[in-house]
Nucleic acid binder design. Structure first.
Lengths: 242, 242
DNA sequence: TATCATTGTGACAATTTGACACAAAGTAAA
DNA sequence: TTTACTTTGTGTCAAATTGTCACAATGATA
């Protein structure tokens, strides 16, 4: 929120020539810490939050646009990112939000600014190692923070529904491939991975069975045990392709 | 192909004011007949085919647009329709195809016609009872016909990839819910449903096991047996919600 | 009345999953 | 130094699910 109002107006207006109109990409960026699944949100106005997102450059692939937007938000490359649904209700627009912002910034009233139009949003979910992420807000927002998916704040438009759908997609994908490792540091222990799975699915999973299942995927490599604990030292593992 | 060239030009031009630019919906409409899974395709030019699709009206929900387009193509309401992916490679445009069509119709050369721009396409798959469908071509196309998914003709753009993805989505969804009944008449026998499943998954499934599984869903109602066969008469079933 | 092809379902083996037990391993307290 | 304590890794066995196959039921046709 350091930018001057006129500058913001200029940026908004120039976007019209850069981006494909009516299309946005929104990302549900998942992070994990001590048995809590979190999503990264931006604060648009007092106590109202929104998903990070952006627009697609005229000559840019959709997936690339989503990547670019996530990278801008957390300063991290090589994140896991997957498209899961496109939201296209006809009432999806920031008409009022932008008008409010403009009046708040004492900018002239606008009608039909491209950014106020109806948007069809292609939604992605991302899995990141929270410890390496450096969240930063964009022009429109004051803060960029992690929130527990268990207690989300008030959200703009249909963004709560998007998060719910993202979680469902993630849970479903997790049944086919142990993606949860993306949320953890490069090296992690089985109890840690186990905890992440339990948190994501919100239910208990038998440890013995879980460990056997993970071995069956044949993608985790056992490394040295990690010490410094007052009990049996857990082995560290890493995913073969990362 | 009964329309006059000038009329077509007019229709194309007027679309610019009606539809959201750069966004299309494409539908993979699945049909089924005697152990063959088929998709409905439109012939754009000699031996080159495309998926049925269309555009989204400025004030129309995305799902509604998809429905409208499918209904226009087969004259059937109440079809099962589900969004499965959005395709957004930056090179997705009918630039050349439209230019060819125009030259073929002796229309003036055009550049930057809205329909020639890059399109992001939200793809849906539909399941229909082929026996009730009445496929009809649109202005641009000469024919609208069913094709076996096993031997697809030459297709425009990434439409073959879209069909592949649709089939994968359908197969995956079929593991969670016995959607295959949408492809059959209202009343059907277990062997028929069994055949549809086998065709869709392209593999053998044990009959006994299959039937038990279907009963577990608790959505099929057993009706009277169907006669007229030189052996034990199979029971008819129907889905409770249709 | 016997034959034939197809359908509906039961029996049992093979496999997968769930629940739980217990030894291994290390620190910290006695 | 020994014992207690906690967490980890894995084995065992029962329960549930899935796969295979067999066989009786059924009705037209020979």
């Amino acid at each position: 929120m350091e930018k001057k109002p006129k500058e913001i107006l200029k940026i908004i207006q120039s976007g019209e020539h850069l981006f494909i109109p009516h299309i946005s990409v929104d990302s549900v960026i998942f992070g994990y810490e001590t048995n809590e699944l979190q999503v990264l949100l931006l604060e648009v106005s007092d106590k109202v939050w929104m998903l990070p997102g952006g627009y697609v450059l005229k000559e840019e692939d959709l997936d690339t646009a989503a990547h670019r937007n996530v990278i801008e938000r957390i300063g991290l490359e090589n994140i896991f990112l997957k498209q899961f649904h496109t939201f296209g209700q006809s009432d999806r627009s920031f008409k009022n939000e932008i008008a409010q912002l403009f009046s708040h910034l004492s900018l002239p009233e606008t009608e039909g600014l491209w950014i106020q139009e109806r948007f069809i949003s292609v939604a992605y979910y991302a899995l990141v190692n929270k410890a390496l992420a450096h969240p930063k807000p964009n022009f429109f927002t004051q803060r960029c923070q992690w929130h527990s998916v268990q207690q989300l704040p008030k959200l703009l438009l249909d963004h709560e529904r998007i998060i719910t759908a993202a979680l469902a997609a993630f849970q479903s994908d997790l049944a086919a491939y142990p993606l949860a490792y993306h949320l953890l540091p490069k090296k992690f222990t089985m109890p840690e991975l186990h905890g992440a799975f339990q948190t994501i699915h919100q239910k208990q999973l038998d440890r013995s069975r879980f460990q056997k299942k993970m071995f069956e995927y044949d993608v985790f490599e056992r490394l040295e045990p990690r010490g410094g604990v007052a009990h049996r030292r857990p082995y560290l593992y890493r995913h073969r392709e990362s």
